[in-house]
Nucleic acid binder design. Sequence first.
DNA 1: ATTGTGGCCTGCCCGC
DNA 2: TGCGGGCAGGCCACAA
Length: 260
Amino acid sequence: MPELIEIESYRRLADEVLGRQVAGVDAPDAWYLKGGLTATAITDALVGRSIVGDRRLGKLLMLDLDDDHTLGLRFGMTGRLVVDGLVSIERLEYSTARHERAWDRFTMRFAGGGDLRMRDPRRLGGVFLDPDMDRLGFEATTLTRRQLARVLGTSMAPLKTRLMDQSRLAGLGNLLTDEVLFRAGLDPARPAGSLSDTELRRLHRVIRRTLAELIDRGGSHTGDFQIARVPGATCPRDGAPIQRRVVGGRATYSCPEHQA
DNA sequence: ATTGTGGCCTGCCCGC
DNA sequence: TGCGGGCAGGCCACAA
């Protein structure tokens, strides 16, 4: 599924449309337009404008227009970005490898040719005009130790749940969170506020390092732990049977041996 | 405020 | 062979 790493890949693909002018918009799915947006409103806002920048905060991709408005794209679990018919990620975990034009929920066509499409079978993503960035927490790739301490606070909620709370920490999804907790040797179900200074430092280092590494490798699914995120697997580190639980309402895999 | 739960979306896979 | 149920998880609404 697209997490921060995949959205960063989409952002780089979106570089291709910088400087292009929007000639037309196809928004056939009203459900996909969020925040009270209509097909007419988004068309009026985009046609004639040029794309002057692309940014990312957590899992939110933003395309800046030349009139100071911003288009926000959220990809949910199965959304892919297609630019001029090219995808940046062919295989997306938990999504289908197929491509159907019927799954094109939103398209911008550009003057002089080419287009940008959001292709999303499950329709869990959405399009925003001037998305509210205040609803998102700290960007995970630049997270500081002090910020991580604020994310966790003195909370009694499960560590994993807090790390996945996009209003506190933007970017980590289910796969990445299991990966960093595996690497940091921390139990996902531990109260978030129960980490020692040493553990917090370690977790911070692991988050930063893991994101940098997996961005280089090219996806959330390239993590060391992902082979073990299946029922009946054994821990790649120590061979113990991997435990599957539901934590914070999400399927959670961890090693009872070295994650404490 | 904090925390937990259930629902939505749809493709796919398993078992009957 | 077809079909129903369960599962995947990001996000949101809602309740206590």
